[in-house]
Computed example of a mutant assay.
Amino acid sequence: MPRRRPGALRAERSPRSGRSSPPPERIHGLSARTSVAIDRVERLSGDYYVHPGATDRALRRYRAFPQPPGRRPRYPRDAECSCRGCSFEDVRHARDVLAEVLRQLPPRSRARPARQVRALDAGYAERTPPDPFAADRQWRSDLWWRRRPTGGPG
């Protein structure tokens, strides 16, 4: 019996037969490698709010908050519901999720998203006034993005 070529043997095997899920969606502005690392963190995280797709959603919400452009101050609003989906109405929650994901990412994969978040932080800090009484009102007043007044024209 003739020997079978290695290429023919590989062609018969199903590609990536051990993989149980499709590759993750690439997050806008990030490399495929970073998107895969973020997907891994989201899937393995024990945090209720860090789930597959949470980082992309948090980045989109955090990017959209300072819109429309202008000089008028913006005020974060509390989410009406604390479930996984509705909680992203509060931009501060989106920033909390980004902080948690960045904390769990390996250093090499953390660099690019950290730069994006720092740039978004600058826009957020510029458009939101500080709250001098936040330490008394906020449960996480140690986080600078939580030390902003809520309500007002949003």
Rank of each mutant, 00 (worst) to 15 (best):
W139Q: 04
R103S: 14
R92M: 06
R110S: 07
F65A: 06
D136K: 00
D78M: 02
R112S: 06
C83E: 04
R95G: 05
A8L: 13
E89H: 07
Q104L: 15
P107F: 02
G7F: 10
P113V: 02
P130E: 15
V91I: 00
S82D: 11
F65T: 04
G123N: 06
R115E: 01
R115Y: 05
A99I: 01
S109G: 11
H51Q: 13
P22I: 02
P73W: 12
D78N: 00
A64G: 03
P68A: 04
P22H: 11
C83D: 09
R118G: 05
V36W: 12
A94Q: 02
S141N: 05
T55S: 14
R40D: 12
V101P: 05
I27F: 05
S21V: 09
V97P: 09
A58Y: 02
D142H: 13
A135N: 10
G46T: 12
Y62Q: 00
I38A: 00
E80Y: 06
D131A: 11
R63E: 09
R61T: 14
S31F: 01
R72C: 05
L120N: 07
V41E: 05
A37I: 03
G53S: 04
D121G: 06
S31Q: 01
A135S: 13
R40M: 08
H28G: 14
D78I: 04
P113Y: 06
A114W: 04
Q116E: 04
A94L: 02
R103Y: 14
R74P: 10
R140A: 05
R118Q: 09
P15L: 15
R84N: 14
S109F: 01
V91K: 00
A114C: 08
P2F: 10
S87P: 05
L30C: 04
S17I: 13
S14M: 13
A114V: 01
V97H: 05
P129S: 08
I27M: 06
R63N: 00
D96K: 07
S20Q: 04
S87N: 05
E25A: 15
P52R: 04
T128V: 08
T55Y: 15
P6I: 11
S82N: 08
E126Q: 08
S20N: 09
Y48K: 11
T34K: 10
S31H: 07
Q138N: 07
D90R: 00
P106D: 15
E80H: 08
E100H: 14
R74S: 07
R77N: 05
Q104C: 14
G154C: 08
Y75K: 02
R13P: 11
F133L: 09
V117H: 05
R61K: 14
S35T: 13
R140N: 02
I27S: 08
R26F: 10
E12R: 15
P153Q: 11
Y62W: 14
P106L: 10
R147F: 09
P68W: 12
G152W: 03
P132V: 10
P69S: 14
Q104D: 14
G154I: 07
T55R: 00
R118D: 08
E126K: 02
E89L: 01
A111W: 13
R43T: 04
R10F: 13
S109N: 09
R77F: 00
A32R: 15
R3P: 03
P153V: 09
R26I: 07
S109T: 08
R3Q: 12
L98N: 11
P76W: 08
R10H: 14
P132R: 11
E25T: 14
C86W: 07
D47M: 03
G85D: 15
D131L: 07
R43H: 09
R110G: 10
G18Q: 12
